[in-house]
Design a protein around this nucleic acid. Structure first.
Length: 966
DNA sequence: GAGTTTGAAACT
DNA sequence: CAGTTTCAAACTC
């Protein structure tokens, strides 16, 4: 009887689900759902409907499946991959899944919600009716199915979940669902681990109580006399799962007097009903739960005798939480074995695979508390991991083009939400995993998994795609996105969960929103997942900050396509650790990223230049005799900071954050930078001026120090003193010179530094080459030397490479620094992506090099660079400087520090002086570059600092000495 | 974990 | 170009 009825019920449930799905679609009005339904649902539905093997088919059928199939790696991976990912996710799945599942369950929950809204009464009545039916049917073993049908009718969503009798009922009633979930959980737990069960049990006392009670009852029934004679264990389970209600009914009817007896026994048991009830209430934060509970309670109440029975059930359930669980599990186990494999299995199985998980998920989602309880820390971690895994996979797939279908299907997925979606998938994954782990049935699960992955991928990819397509449009419509995300996730989940999930997923979509509302407290699993988990990760990771180079961003609105994003600014793609939302800074969106970069560069060619530049020279200044430099390193912030309140003593200050001292370029107020005060820097400059004052003066003349540093320095010409002679030489060897220059100039900021270094560095006389080239002044030589010292470009590059996390392919970022091998610097360098090839930035001047970042343009080979650069072209030099390793190697020289570093970003036309100089020396320099000067405070070009310096430092003296020597 | 502060980036 | 707004990180509670 039961088996046949169960089949019928299943069929009914499937039909109901389909209808429900359609209804949901219509209701939702989201084309997405419709799309999904058409494309995917069939498979999912089928799977759901057809208990057994649907899983695989659905995947294939769905576009997603195609997509997945297209992705060979994924395919392979899918099973394993997904499984793993899910597995990883699995742990978390509880959380995720639950929400999703809950959403799935939600249908019920939704219905429940409706009930809450006012349909509760209906529900109760309905339940009562159902119960009555069940009473009769229970005997037959059909009760559950009937209920499902009823529930399905009323609640579109619910039934799907309940496809199989027991499951259906669980699903149908939120409470039941919860209970079912708990039961499943328990079962799964039994299969998987007791811990989960306990957590679930603890979390869902209500549902558990009910379910457990039922189960227990059932068990008792079975034990007692197997009230349902002839009923298979599965049927029994179904009855049990169906709810205490049915049991109650039975009790009332006396059909299951044995049960009643048992109930009485339970009552007699130590269980405190009141406490249970309290728990129940507590547990019932969610409307659904409450509704269920209420409904159950009401129903029970309606049934005079039932109440006690119910209470007993509750108590029993509680007991079950502890003692009962085991027996129940054992029972469930056995039953599961039979049922799962049988009819129940369908739902469960299909679910099955997903089922346990799905249920767990459902429970979680439905019952926030339950979810929370269920989600153990480990699980949460698992979720995170799963999430990570997903992200990883997505990345790995980055290149993969999502099928447009998928994209089309999920147009909205992109954007922040996409990110959200990802997690959900993970959730799915979890389900799958759990399924896989728990139940061998994996096949279906795998299929669903595949779908889920595909969906995820599509979502992500779509996001990317969309983002790409949309290009720069800002992500918006958060609300929609959310829903979409939910849908997506739900879809994925559904895929995972299979047929049931399909229906449920749609419902879930519907319900998710509600649930989220409900569960907002819990934190929407999805959202939480998306955000919180990332945050957590982020925090964890953030500490590490990738080891060094990479910071993890947490962008929410910029999509990681603006300089606000550290990753984007650093010319690297966002990575897993990032907790950014709607991130487009991914390989998938390389085109988009490039465009944006170009745009930004167009506005500020140096936008992507390393912020921290090491002076060519390590600067004598800092470490050298003078000792004036406090900064640990000679490095300085290219643009300088603009701190007003932090006094450059907090990480708000970019200089401080980079562990570099403030420089002239800084506009900070009250600078107390421990790494070097601006004043000190000025002093050094002064020294420089004095030592090389001539040059400086020529360069600086009009500009404030900063400007001076930035622009002038950048300009080789400015450096000029050298220029004339230098030029001559330069002309002869543009390339060489350019190289040299480039080196020096490397980073604009550096340029400043370089200049300083020049002035300061007097001491090191190193480079023979440099000597050759130029340098008129010994200083220059020194500078060069120092520069050479500090930098071995190659070293730098290597370091940078090492540190590269995810260098943008083309990113030309220059690692200037080379300076010594300081870890910090390295890190800095790592941040900047060096162009491995040339190491140089290409572009002339500020302009191009950016493009490279993304695109591998770097083409500029050194040669090109050199050529392009022409010593004359200051801009190129500036930019290139950094890059040119060869230069460093080879010539020493240089002198032209051009730089680029435009200080705050404002562009400055090349200083006239420079032009003059440059013109004389080499016109090109001037033309090319844009000088970005921050507003230089009104420093008299050098003077103020110089003045301050007066006291000054040995460095100056040294310089003077050097000069004198020369 | 949420809210505030800070300063860079972006916008007008 | 200056001023304002937006943004994300850093910081505080």
């Amino acid at each position: 009887m039961t088996s046949s009825t169960g089949n019928k019920e299943r069929a009914m449930a499937a039909a109901m689900r389909n209808e429900a799905v359609e209804q949901l679609v219509s209701l939702s009005g989201s084309w997405f759902l419709a799309e999904w339904r058409h494309d995917c649902r069939p498979a999912g539905l089928q799977s759901s409907t057809s208990i057994t093997t649907t899983s695989s088919s659905p995947v294939q059928e769905s576009p997603f499946s195609n997509y997945i199939s297209s992705l060979s790696p994924i395919k392979h991976d899918k099973a394993p991959h997904v499984a793993q990912g899910f597995l990883g996710l699995n742990s978390p799945p509880l959380v995720f899944t639950s929400p999703r599942i809950s959403t799935l369950g939600r249908p019920q929950s939704s219905s429940v919600e409706v009930h809450q809204n006012g349909q509760v009464d209906k529900k109760r009545t309905h339940e009562s009716c159902i119960l009555e039916r069940s009473v009769t049917e229970l005997q037959e073993g059909l009760v559950i199915d009937i209920k499902k049908e009823d529930d399905n009718k009323e609640n579109v969503s619910v039934q799907p979940s309940s496809s199989s009798g027991c499951v259906d009922e669980y699903l149908a009633d939120p409470v039941e669902a919860d209970c079912a979930n708990s039961a499943y959980v328990v079962n799964s737990n039994l299969k998987q681990s007791n811990n989960v069960l306990q957590s679930s049990v603890n979390g869902f006392t209500d549902s558990k109580n009910i379910k457990v009670g039922n189960k227990n009852i059932v068990g008792k029934e079975v034990e007692a006399a197997q009230l349902l004679s002839g009923q298979s264990e599965g049927s029994i389970e179904r009855k049990l799962t169906s709810d205490g209600k049915s049991l109650m009914i039975e009790n009332e009817q006396g059909a299951a007097q044995g049960l009643s007896d048992e109930f009485q026994k339970f009552e007699s048991d130590t269980f405190d009903i009141s406490s249970k009830e309290k728990e129940f209430e507590n547990l019932g934060p969610q409307k659904v739960v409450e509704d269920h509970v209420d409904g159950c309670n009401d129903f029970l109440q309606q049934l005079p005798g039932s109440l006690q029975g119910v209470q007993s059930y509750k108590d029993f359930a509680e007991n079950v939480g502890g003692d009962v669980d085991v027996p129940v599990h054992s029972m469930a186990h056995d039953l599961e074995a039979s049922e799962l494999q049988r009819g129940m299995s369908r739902r469960c199985l299909q679910f099955g695979e997903a089922q346990p998980q799905a249920r767990a998920n459902c429970t979680v989602s439905t019952n926030p508390a339950a979810s929370t309880s269920l989600a153990t820390a480990s699980e949460a971690e698992g979720l995170d991991s799963s999430h990570l895994d997903l992200s990883v996979t997505s990345r790995t797939k980055q290149s993969v083009n999502l099928p447009q279908l998928a994209i089309n299907m999920i147009p909205q997925c992109y954007g922040e939400k996409s990110s959200l979606t990802v997690p959900k998938p993970s959730g799915i994954g979890l389900h799958l995993n759990s399924i896989v782990n728990a139940i061998p049935i994996a096949q279906v699960g795998s299929a669903s998994m595949k779908l889920a992955q595909a969906i995820k991928l599509t979502c992500q990819s779509t996001e990317n795609m969309d983002s790409c397509s949309d290009a720069f449009e800002k992500v918006s419509a958060p609300p929609q996105d959310v829903t979409l995300e939910v849908k997506v996730s739900t879809v994925a989940d559904s895929a995972v969960s299979e047929s049931l999930s399909a229906m449920e997923s749609t419902e879930c979509d519907m319900t998710l929103n509600k649930q989220r509302k409900f569960s907002s407290e819990d934190g929407n699993s999805d959202e939480v997942f998306d955000q919180q988990s990332p945050k957590k990760k982020r925090k964890k990771l953030s500490n590490s900050t990738d080891g060094e180079g990479c910071k993890r961003c947490n962008c929410k609105k910029t999509k990681c396509l603006k300089l606000y994003c550290d990753c984007f600014a650093a010319g690297i793609y966002c990575t897993e650790p990032c907790s950014c939302q709607g991130c487009f800074n991914r390989p998938e969106c390389a085109d988009m990223v490039l465009e944006i970069r170009k745009q930004i560069e167009s506005r500020n060619p140096l936008a992507f230049a390393p912020k921290i530049v090491q002076p060519f020279t390590e600067f004598p200044l800092s470490n050298r005799e003078d000792g004036n430099w406090k900064t640990p390193s000679s490095a300085r912030h290219k643009r300088g900071c603009n701190c007003k309140r932090s006094m450059c003593l907090k990480k708000y200050c970019e200089c401080y954050q980079a562990n570099v001292g403030c420089s002239i370029g800084c506009r900070c107020e009250g600078c107390k930078n421990v790494y070097g005060k601006k004043e000190d820097y000025c002093v050094t400059e002064e020294m420089f001026n004095r030592s090389g004052g001539e040059r400086l003066e020529s360069r600086v003349t009009a500009k404030p120090k900063k400007d001076f540093l930035h622009s002038e320095l950048c300009d080789p010409h400015h450096l000029t003193p050298l220029t004339p002679s230098f030029q001559s030489s330069v002309n002869g060897n543009k390339a060489s010179i350019s190289r040299l220059l480039s080196r020096r100039c490397l980073p604009s900021p550096e340029s400043d530094l370089t200049i300083l270094s020049h002035s300061k560095s007097p001491r090191s006389p190193r480079t023979s080459d440099s000597n050759d080239m130029c340098l008129d002044t010994s200083k220059e030589k020194l500078d060069i030397e120092s520069y050479c010292e500090g930098i071995s470009y190659n070293n730098v590059v290597a370091l940078a490479d090492e540190f590269h996390q995810t260098p943008l392919p083309n990113h030309p970022s220059i690692a200037i620094g080379s300076s010594s091998s300081k870890a910090r610097e390295l890190t800095n360098l790592s941040r900047f992506q060096l162009d491995p090839r040339s190491g140089s930035l290409t572009s002339g001047g500020s302009l191009h090099w950016h493009s490279p970042p993304i695109t591998p343009m770097s083409p500029l080979d050194e040669n090109k660079n050199l050529q392009g650069l022409d010593p004359a072209d200051g801009g190129l030099f500036d930019i290139l400087e950094d890059d040119m390793p060869e230069i460093l190697k080879g010539t020493s020289m240089a002198i032209m520090p051009v730089k680029a570093g435009s200080p705050n970003g404002k562009r400055v036309s090349p200083p006239h002086n420079l032009h003059q100089l440059g013109s004389s020396s080499s016109g090109p320099l001037r033309s090319g570059r844009k000088f970005i000067l921050k507003a230089v405070p009104s420093f008299p070009p050098l003077t103020p600092c110089i003045d301050s310096k007066s006291s000054s430092t040995q460095g100056r003296n040294d310089l003077q000495e050097n000069r004198s020597n020369e």
